[in-house]
Amino acid sequence: MHSHSEPGLSRRDLLVAGAATVAGSAATGPAHAQDAVNTSSMDTVPRAPVHAPVRFTVNGREHALELDTRTSLLDALREHLHLTGTKKGCDHGQCGACTVMVDGVRINSCLTLAVMHEGADVTTIEGLGTPDRLHAMQAAFVKHDGYQCGYCTPGQICSAVAVLDEIKAGIPSHVTADIMATPEFSVDEVRERMSGNICRCGAYSNIIEAITEVAGRAA
């Protein structure tokens, strides 16, 4: 853990920090920061990082952290809490490898700042099961070989667990025929809802069989 010199953060500091972030994005535009041709007009005086306290629960355990306000929830988990089961594949919300559940809802943890989650209840892959006590979804992934390199796997499993809950909760998807009716479990529903989790090894067919088994249907 790093030492932090600014324990407190006023509302005004936060607004200033927010404005600087917006200005920075505008100046570099849609191109990438590393294409640093002519970026001299801004940020010539580097500002010390702003830190803020945040408390949240991860896998049933409470944590009180003092974090750089730019730290994503993903990096808070991986770099500060050393919960490295949640993966960083793209850091841009494109691949789903960082999927965790926050207050029961799956999100891309790379797309949200850790300090936004005061009081939240976070579940990561480590909170579902352990190698000696696998969660049913983890066991089904092993049985159906629903993974290869393993890097997208924690995100796939967290998403899969959440998807079954979403269907049970009656939340419709793009392929739900009647959005006023209660959605039914089907492989098309699962494929649609899992499509934010990329598996480049191409284990999709097996992942669907694993999820189907856990959902209590014949594969």
């Binding site: 919960l83 490295t84 089961g85 949640t86 993966k87 990561t124 892959i125 480590e126 579902l128 099961g129 352990t130 190698p131 000696d132 696998l134 983890q138 066991a139 992934f141 092993v142 070989d145 993974y147 393993g150 796997t153 924690p154 499993i157």
Partner: peptide, 8 residues
Amino acid sequence: GPLKTTGT
């Protein structure tokens, strides 16, 4: 498998 599916 148990390591990969548990993020360990």
